[in-house]
Computed example of a mutant assay.
Amino acid sequence: MKLKMTLCVALAFTATALFAQSDYKQSIGLRFGSGYYDIVSAAYKTFLNEAGALEVNAGFHPYGVTGYRWVNASASVGYQHHFPIKPVDGLKWFVGGGVVAANSFSSNDYYKGFSLGLFPTAGADYKFSKIPLAVSADVRPTIHVIKAVDYHNSFYPNAGVSARYTF
């Protein structure tokens, strides 16, 4: 009798925990950024464990100055460590860091070249409980350790919002 009662209680706790969670394992979607190296990017996020995740982005940013046009293509990967925000199911904040590689394509040498940067990141991630959608907002102030010739600055602020389908 005690075994049956213990199993019933354990099953109830397990079912409650499963239905209360709004976590996801992977997601894919878009990230809209404000930074130098990408204005829109494809975003893929996968959790390595309950708290740690990798986010991979591949993006571009078209530019135009009087007489010159160029495009910047980039790829970034960042690690994010998540912490739940207890009052709201599905809401987490995260901190981490990553690396970005970017290349500008132009017929003008002034506007082309390769750059490599490091960034800390922080933000919030929310997974809707009833639909397979996660949204997030983050900041990624990027310091370029390798920058293209004639770029005026090694520091580029970057903030973004993402919407991703979860599975």
Rank of each mutant, 00 (worst) to 15 (best):
G52D: 15
W70L: 02
G64H: 15
S74G: 05
Q80M: 07
A53I: 03
F32H: 06
E55Y: 10
H61V: 05
S27I: 10
I39W: 13
W70D: 03
Q26T: 03
G35P: 05
Y36N: 10
S34N: 04
Y79I: 10
V65D: 09
Q80S: 10
S74M: 06
Y68C: 09
Y36S: 07
I28Y: 06
A53T: 04
G52I: 10
K25V: 14
V77I: 11
P62D: 00
I39E: 08
Y37N: 15
N49P: 08
Q26W: 00
T46Q: 14
N49L: 09
A75P: 00
Y37W: 15
G67I: 02
V77W: 03
L54C: 04
E55H: 11
G52N: 15
Q26S: 06
G52M: 14
Q80Y: 07
Y36I: 08
G59A: 03
Y79T: 12
V56Q: 11
N57A: 10
P62A: 00
T66S: 15
V71T: 04
K25P: 02
S34P: 01
V77C: 00
S27M: 09
Y79A: 13
G59L: 06
G33M: 03
T66E: 13
F60S: 14
Y36L: 09
E50D: 11
A53P: 02
G29D: 02
A53Y: 01
I28H: 09
A42T: 05
N49M: 06
N72K: 07
N72D: 07
G35N: 03
A51W: 02
V56W: 14
L30G: 07
A43N: 12
A73H: 12
E50H: 11
S76Y: 01
Y63K: 11
I28P: 02
G33Q: 02
Q80I: 06
S41W: 11
Y36Q: 07
Y44G: 00
S76P: 00
N57D: 14
G78D: 07
G29P: 10
P62T: 09
Y37R: 15
G78T: 01
V40F: 14
Y79E: 11
N72R: 07
E55I: 13
F47D: 06
N49A: 10
F47L: 03
L48G: 10
D38W: 11
S74F: 02
G67N: 02
N49S: 12
L54F: 15
G33N: 05
G59H: 05
L54R: 13
D38K: 13
S76E: 08
A75M: 11
E50Y: 10
V56H: 12
Q80V: 03
Y44I: 05
W70F: 06
I28F: 10
S76V: 00
Y44R: 02
H61I: 00
N49T: 10
G52Q: 14
G78Y: 09
F32A: 04
V77R: 05
S41C: 09
G52W: 13
A75I: 10
E55C: 07
V40R: 07
Y79H: 08
S34W: 00
A73Y: 15
F60A: 15
S41F: 02
R31E: 05
Y63I: 08
G29A: 01
Y63A: 09
G59C: 00
W70P: 05
V77N: 09
H61N: 12
S76D: 07
N57L: 12
S74I: 01
Q26N: 09
V56M: 13
G78N: 04
A51E: 13
G78F: 09
I39D: 08
G33C: 01
F47K: 02
Y79P: 09
E55S: 13
D38T: 12
Q26K: 02
